[in-house]
Computed example of a mutant assay.
Amino acid sequence: MTEFVLVAGARLGSWAWDEVVPHLRAAGHGAHPLTLSGLAEKRGMPAGQQTHVQDIVDAIEHRDLRNVILVGHSYAGIPVGQAAGRIGDRLEHVVLVDAGVPADGASFAAGWPDGGAALKASLDANGGFWAVPPASHYAGHGLTDEQIARIVRGSTPHPGATLTEPAVLVRPLGELAGTYVVCGLAGEGPGEDVAELLGEERWRAAGLDTGHWPMFSRPRELARILLGASPG
């Protein structure tokens, strides 16, 4: 049995996977959506980048999970990519869903076109947190008004230190087996870091004709891609 460990992006918690989890479990697999420190029901807990990496590693080790498919969406690709290299032979596959790709010594903010200056200014203006955006931020991503309202209602400000602290890779992500999910409505498309990753022998691409939040807009189709990464 495959154990899916699911980590959503910035401002989101385990609840973001509510419509994906039933499809995975119906196929006979384990599904473990995680909430990272400082978010959702863990709001108020101090968190930096390595806190989130440790959250993931601890969840896998404490539950003694094996045959793990580790899934990271958006921001969560950064801590997921680091955690993947730290769980040894527990890992079966990595899936990045329209996600950031960690680079050793670089932060999530460093991947922004301006080197993260605009993001850091936003954090400074909001007490060190990345504020929850308005509903208009989600337009054009294949989401219904009801889905957008649910995302906005459930989101919490994101701890800024997790975005500005550097990644620490103990193993290059390209050495691991993985899938990168490209969401066709999510802007300009994958960058050079994704192209480089997909150039590795053990990585492949999968596409979804939807926006940046497929766990809401296309949960069944996303689950199908995740199940396709499992040998079972």
Rank of each mutant, 00 (worst) to 15 (best):
M1F: 02
T2A: 11
F4V: 08
F4A: 00
V7N: 05
R11K: 05
R11H: 11
R11T: 14
L12Y: 06
W15E: 11
A16E: 12
A16G: 04
E19M: 04
V20P: 07
V20C: 01
V21E: 15
H29V: 10
G30E: 13
A31S: 12
G38T: 00
L39M: 12
K42R: 15
G44P: 06
G44M: 10
M45R: 15
G48R: 03
Q49D: 05
Q49A: 08
Q49G: 01
D55V: 07
E61S: 06
L70V: 03
Y75L: 05
A76C: 05
I78P: 01
V80W: 07
Q82I: 11
A84H: 12
R86Q: 14
G88V: 09
R90P: 05
L91W: 08
H93G: 01
H93M: 04
V101K: 00
A103R: 14
A103D: 09
D104P: 00
G105T: 09
F108P: 00
G111Q: 13
W112C: 01
P113V: 13
P113M: 13
G116E: 11
L123H: 06
N126K: 02
G128Q: 08
G128W: 09
W130T: 00
P133K: 08
S136M: 08
H137P: 00
H137N: 06
I148C: 01
V152Q: 10
R153N: 12
T156R: 13
P159R: 03
T162W: 05
E165C: 03
P166H: 04
P166W: 05
A167T: 02
V170D: 14
L173H: 02
G178S: 03
G178T: 07
Y180I: 05
C183G: 01
L185N: 11
E192P: 12
D193N: 08
V194R: 12
E196N: 10
L198D: 04
G199V: 02
R204S: 10
L208N: 02
D209R: 13
E221Q: 14
E221C: 03
S230C: 13
